[in-house]
Design a binder for these strands. Sequence first.
DNA 1: TCGGTGCTTATTTTT
DNA 2: TAAGCACCGA
Length: 766
Amino acid sequence: MNVQFRKDIFAGLNEVQKEAVLCTEGPVLVLAGAGSGKTRVLTHRIAHIVQRKLARPRQVLAVTFTNKAAGELKERVAAITAGGDEVAAGTFHSTMLRVLRREAKALVYPQDFSVFDNDDSVRLVKQILDDANEAGKFRPKLVHAVISRLKNDFVAPEQYAKHAKSPLDRAVAHVYPEYNRRLKILAAMDFDDLIVQATRLFREHPSVLATWSSRWRYLHVDELQDTNFAQFELLRLLAGSQRPNLFAVGDDDQSIYGWRGARVENVFQFQEAFPETKVFRLEQNYRSTQAILDLANAVIEQSDRRERKRLWTARGGGQLPEVIGLATDQDEAREVADRIGRAVMSGRRAFSDFAIMYRTNAQSRLFEEALRSRRFPYQLLGGVGFYSRKETRDALAYFKLCLNPRDDISLRRIISEPPRGIGATTLERLKSFADEHELSLFEAMERACELRALNARAANACAKFVDQVNAWRTALANEPLEKWAASVLEESGYIARLRDEKSFESQGRLDNLDSLIDSLAEHAAAGRSLTEYLEQAALATDQDKYDPHADSVRLMTIHAAKGLEFPAVFITGLEGRTFPLQRPDESEVRDPDEERRLFYVAVTRAHDELALTYSGRRRVWGQLQERSASTFLRELPEDAAEWRSARSAFTSSPGTDEPAAAGSASERIRRLQRRRAAEDLPMLGQAGAEEDAERSASQEIRDVPPDDVPAVRNGDLVLHHTYGQGIVLDVSPFRDTVRVLVEFDGGVQKRLVQSVARLQPVKDFE
DNA sequence: TCGGTGCTTATTTTT
DNA sequence: TAAGCACCGA
């Protein structure tokens, strides 16, 4: 082979990485520390396989943790070698979904089965509990979680029933088989089925297994430490009994999904399951400064771990991480936002350099408010995201019902949304008829006229609805997707109802539906079907929504931050009970080691700057609680971080003493600054800033009468509390928003959207 | 059948 | 605090 291309593939890899890439035959385990370039190894190895023609791109499978990671992997392979984008890559779930669609016949499932997301599944469990008169005794979510664990551990309902003792156990023992039975009737699979049914498929149909395992000649698995029992079993099956070409990457220190059945043990059992495994260790970190790594090492060394690793970096020194104590959770949010503001205003950082991380989603709110009130752009990953908003889910339920009318969960969701004369009583009667004949609700509705129990009015309403759905089903094949979707929402009366409401909230919902239609249009333009759209909506992870190109602060749980990295990271809420998280009704932290690994994961996301914050008081469920610094902080070596207490959120205004750069805008700002200093005027808007956290954006919008907006005009010079000065570029007459151009010494320009309520024009200038 | 009111309850973390 | 749910009255 010629030396030239080898140089391409191996350029920039260290010795261990190179060896791992070259080791293409047989099982390989790479123990990869955080930031040690495992994605690089993965992409280069696949590129190497493709380029050496050991296999065609589609014969290479890579199982990643998110679909986004899969997409990036393909891109990166494609950047090195032709055909890289044809590599089969996806999550366990999306990969197996493709298999199951193709092989549905073998499992006696309809090929167009629905995929139930968590919400759907929990609703189904709730149905069953309600039917069994167990409503209210057990939380459906909990029961579903137990069932999910059982499925992934391959515990069959009959097996479980034998050992059921506690009331919860017995409830689960009742719900579990019924839940499976109904999924089948509804022609649906839940998330766990995608793995478990695939395993069943491969076990019971050796010829099917043979097809797929010979198709994928090279297997890759990322994040091995977060795979569960069923997934490992799936790997074993696909790998076959011969010496498989199976390449796994993992880090036991980063195992953070134990609560959903992930088994770190899979990392250690890999070598037993696959004899002759070659092991490589990646310990050089390319991401963080030494100061950050020192802290990370200090954190993880406190845990009992099986594989001793110690990360090191060639990036010596670095800024010492800071520990910042605040009085309250609101101060914490303000401090974080202010620090971001100062760094951005000084031109030292962009918004997108920052990530704010927290233990639980509920903590995001204060940060959102603080950022929003300053008009800083931000992206929230996770939480109540787009696909879990009510209106989005309702709309998707209409679409799902059209694809699979047997989907009772979707039907129930929208049957009274808007109300159409089919209420609880009618539904109850339909349901008993459906149960009797093993039908879905929709099928029962189709036969509503046979149903004596229904009065004419209800039967009519049913017939009308059935006709409507059938008409939509026909239309789906003949119309462009986005047009079809819009007319479904229109004809169903869903949109009309929102329009009639005319509230602030309903307007937002209509906007969301618009963007849903937009995204459908985009999707359709790429030649994809509605089925595929719904699948990606169901299987989308929080990270899949993350747009790395937008210049905005990222807010996320630490779990959602897995695999990501940022120049500057805030880890917040480092207090007792919050992180490590302890449930209010329990006296101990459930899994202290996993909490610690979570902390470790968070720390190792940072390139250059790291700040750890905590506050003395925090509002939980509306109640103010006293908090102390987290045990994690107390365990840190003295010199691992710089400790400071920032009780006051507003310290000083940014110093900009450099001479003004050329350009009229900065000239004007500079002169203005000098004048203000001379007159000893207070910084404008400072009082307003104090109120920021108390005000939500919606309140602000109502607070400002539209007539007041022209108080600021284009070209005005403005000040906005401590951050800086700028010139108004653009005033929106409808909202209280203003776009402001801020210029700095180096000619750095930042666009901000700020609140008119807080902006005051500087008059009589020049 | 449906909408409104007032009470309860919840917070880990997510494919 | 906020959302979700059960109950009740029209």
